[in-house]
């Protein structure tokens, strides 16, 4: 009877580890992307968009418009890589100031950066994988 109890316990632990291993591969990647993305954000974006993603008055748009980030998900890597020359509408507010390009950021950097941005400042949109980035970058206008 006692032995049976230990067996069940052991079986349960093995099962838990097995399940956990499947889940974590994806979530480890997410955590790694997110952490690296936070550093990239600090060095490339924070000066203008601020540490809390609020932007600056009506000059620099905030990064808190979840609907925008979802709707234009495919264009996000293009915006970060090539900047914005004309205008952008965020939270129904038009912003006219030019956003500089970031030609030095590689696809993997964009993936990490966008994983961070789309999961911070009130956004929760999961992993932005490098394969998805590479696909979208081909279609930049």
């Amino acid at each position: 009877m006692r032995n049976l109890f230990f067996f069940y316990c052991f079986a349960l632990i093995v099962l838990a580890i097995a399940v956990n291993a499947c889940v974590t591969e994806q979530s480890v990647k997410y955590t790694r992307y997110f952490a690296d993305g936070a550093q990239l954000y600090k060095s490339h974006c924070q000066n203008c968009h601020s540490a809390t993603g609020q932007g600056l008055a009506q000059l620099i748009p905030p990064l808190t418009d979840t609907l925008f980030l979802r709707k234009y998900r495919a264009q996000l890597p293009c915006i970060v890589q090539y900047g914005i020359a004309d205008s952008i509408t965020i939270h129904q507010q038009v912003y006219h100031f030019k956003m500089p390009a970031n030609p030095k950021l590689a696809a993997i950097d964009l993936a990490k950066l966008l994983t961070f941005v789309t999961n911070s400042f009130g956004n929760k949109q999961g992993l932005y994988d490098i394969s998805e980035i590479e696909n979208h970058l081909k279609n930049c206008r």
Binding site: N47, C48, F97, P100
Partner: peptide, 16 residues
């Protein structure tokens, strides 16, 4: 300067 992407936005935020 208005088109400055490095430290100016922070400065303006702080000046605000």
């Amino acid at each position: 300067f208005t088109s400055c992407p490095s430290i100016c936005p922070i400065m303006k935020k702080q000046m605000l």
